[in-house]
Amino acid sequence: MKNLHTAIGLLVSVMSFGAIAADDNVQIKPPAAGSVSQQQGLLAWSRIFDVASHPRCANCHTGPSDRPMWSGPSYGKTRVHGMNIQAGKSRIGAETILCSTCHTNKSEDWDKANTVNHAAPRVAMSWQLAPEDAFWFGRTTQQICEQLRNPETNGNRDALEIAEHLNHDLILHWAWAPGGNREPAPYSLQEHVNDILAWGVAGTPCPED
């Protein structure tokens, strides 16, 4: 097991041969403190939930399960990712088969990479499942809201840092440009970032508060 953990550590450092950079088109401009009411914050949250619960996002936020999900026009109703894929504790499949075996790293400027139906989608960073704490698949709006506002389960981030995370983590950008016949996440990345910022300024309210 020690050998496996050592190999996984080495793997994470070696496999990232694609560049990671921020999307220059996304602006991180939080509203002024006190300018967003709780009601407006809850409206922003409802749109955030639309995104978080959408298959382009939730299918890889499977929590304790290390099985990514598939859904969309190609698959009918949602089902477990084919090929017996298990992302493991590493969340990158290091224990069995790496996500990046098929979801290879692509150049940022190669916009035609995801145009082929049924081919594995790709981004300019290592494909992976979300951390176990970020459990969204099949969860309620209250459950996701509480997870996202709790630093112990959101990667120790405030709302501004969540917005910056959205800007920098290119795998998240894929949700709005999935290619093929995949349905993109609702709204736009910029609108989603704006909602996160507004929700934060409103005090990160949740529906059942």
Binding site: V14, F17, G18, H103, T104, K106, S107, W110
Partner: peptide, 21 residues
Amino acid sequence: CTVHVNGYAVRSCQLAVGDLG
């Protein structure tokens, strides 16, 4: 089409040669 890139399995039909570095 599986090959190794830096020792790890990769489907070579999916990797653009320009992304090899």
